[in-house]
């Protein structure tokens, strides 16, 4: 009993410490978003804290400014394009890296990671010049491709880690049970990879919408994505309009997270 009591005392101190650190981290993570949300309702026409009143004026302005709405739609298109490209390229790449029976599977999985390690600005400039070299000017498509190159590693890694934990005997069993290689992929491998593909999609979609460093060099002159539009807005205006745009994004992010947790579950995203 004595030993138990002593250990439970240290347990309480330890738990308290962990709890304290956790609360502190949570505040650190959430506080900026909350402050932005608060500012977005301020009545004053400049950014300041704490607010002096409550108004929905800035949210109204967000949806009245056509360039903001257009940039949101542009970013949505980029997000979707990037996600589709990442699924089409990333899933086969992950399969090749894990199940491939050729030399260089390790080299391939490292190679995919390289663009993600390069600073986004460097990649953006590189894609801009490379595009110019082959006669492709900046556009919503060039931007989508550039961000795909940048974020592909995340999809590959997510699917790869799931694939590595799948029992290889499952695919052998499918083959033994008369499945052709394609049938085995369709009926066994893909359904079991689905949670990882969805999780990867969440990350690539968010990156497609939110990326600034790559987008700033590759976006089309007439098709400005939201982050680029926001940057300009911050530079030339000082109203809480920017905060309201962020508010819209935060709400959308929360809606997306709830949707994911209700469909595939957040646990599946983590693994």
């Amino acid at each position: 009993m004595k030993a138990l009591k002593r250990s439970s005392l240290t347990d309480i101190i330890g738990l308290g410490l962990i709890f304290g650190v956790a609360i502190f981290s949570l505040i650190l993570l959430v506080a900026p978003s909350i402050i932005v949300l608060i500012i977005s309702f301020d009545t004053r026409a400049y950014v300041s804290f704490p607010p002096e009143g409550f108004t929905l004026r800035w949210y109204g302005e967000v949806f009245q400014k056509s360039e903001l709405v257009e940039s949101m739609l542009n970013s949505l298109q980029v997000g979707l394009t990037v996600t589709v490209l990442c699924i089409l390229l990333g899933v086969p790449t992950a399969l090749a890296c894990v199940r491939g029976r050729f030399r260089g599977t390790t080299a391939l999985s490292v190679f995919v990671l390289v663009p993600h390690m390069v600073p986004g600005i460097v990649l953006g400039v590189a894609v801009l010049f490379a595009g110019a070299l082959v006669g492709v000017s900046p556009s919503i498509w060039l931007q989508s491709v550039a961000i795909t190159v940048f974020i592909l590693a995340v999809m590959v890694r997510t699917v790869q880690s799931r694939l590595m934990r799948l029992d290889p005997a499952l695919e052998e069993a499918a083959a033994n049970l008369r499945a052709t290689p394609f049938q085995s992929l369709r009926t066994v491998t893909f359904p079991l990879l689905m949670p990882a593909i969805l999780a990867g999609s969440v990350f690539t979609f968010v990156e497609g919408i939110d990326n600034l460093s790559v987008a700033i060099f590759t976006h089309g002159f007439r098709d400005r994505p939201l982050p680029v539009e926001l940057l300009a807005l911050v530079q030339y205006t000082s109203t809480p309009l920017v905060a309201a745009v962020s508010g819209v994004q935060i709400v959308l992010a929360i809606v997306a997270l709830i949707a994911v947790s209700l469909t595939i579950g957040l646990d599946n995203v983590n693994d």
Partner: peptide
């Protein structure tokens, strides 16, 4: 090929399809 051999394999892990 594997999928045309008249053999049935019971695996050590059973390899039942979990889904």
């Amino acid at each position: 090929p594997v999928n045309r051999r008249p053999v049935g394999v019971v695996f050590q892990s059973y390899a039942l399809f979990p889904h």
